[in-house]
């Protein structure tokens, strides 16, 4: 099977990273969903033979550089998320959307938990429950993300 449309995947990752950086009003800063993780989950499910742990690591490192966090903080979480999504992609694909959302919530929380640990180890653990909000916002966004990215994938025949 010839693979094409690699630039679409790259472009969606870039768009996700830009969304991570775009300024939000002060009250909305803690609501920002983990865009890059959501896109990563989608591609790990839709094109598991192409997007996997390696991509996840690269994406995570890029995000660390862009957001000025410890190198590897985002990468660690994304590696695990991509691994799980890759392993379960056949099952997740046939789930109804709400059930997918639940699983996505778990993966997003796992990503946040790993980052939380990293931050704790270097003594900068975030205070308050605000920290966990993005995963739930991500869960609510997932059906919409899934449909948009699926349409894009079909339109450009990415496999």
């Amino acid at each position: 099977m010839k693979s094409h449309g690699g630039w679409i995947i790259a472009a969606s990752f870039l768009a996700a990273l830009l969304l991570e950086l775009i300024p939000l009003p002060e009250w909305a800063r803690f609501v920002r969903p983990q865009w890059s993780v959501l896109v990563l989950i989608y591609w790990s499910i839709a094109a598991p033979q192409r997007v996997g742990v390696g991509y996840a690591w690269l994406l995570g490192i890029i995000q660390d550089v862009l957001t000025g966090t410890l190198l590897g903080q985002h990468a660690l979480g994304m590696i695990f998320v991509a691994f799980i999504a890759n392993r379960l992609h056949k099952r997740i694909r046939v789930f109804p959307l709400w059930q997918q959302s639940m699983l996505v919530l778990l993966m997003l929380l796992l990503d946040q938990l790993l980052q939380f640990w990293t931050l704790g180890v270097i003594g900068q653990s975030p205070k308050g429950l605000n920290y966990w909000v993005p995963a739930f916002v991500g869960m609510l966004l997932w059906p919409w993300m899934f449909i948009v990215l699926r349409d894009i994938r079909r339109r450009f025949h990415v496999q």
Partner: peptide, 29 residues
């Protein structure tokens, strides 16, 4: 991660990476 947190040798790598990050920052703004 440990290396980045504890040692300074990584500073060069970070500086290099920052050069790549700068255009993306401008793009996002």
């Amino acid at each position: 991660m440990t290396v980045d947190h504890r040692f300074d040798q990584f500073a060069k790598v970070r500086t290099f990476l920052a050069n790549i990050a700068a255009p993306v920052h401008y793009l996002a703004a």
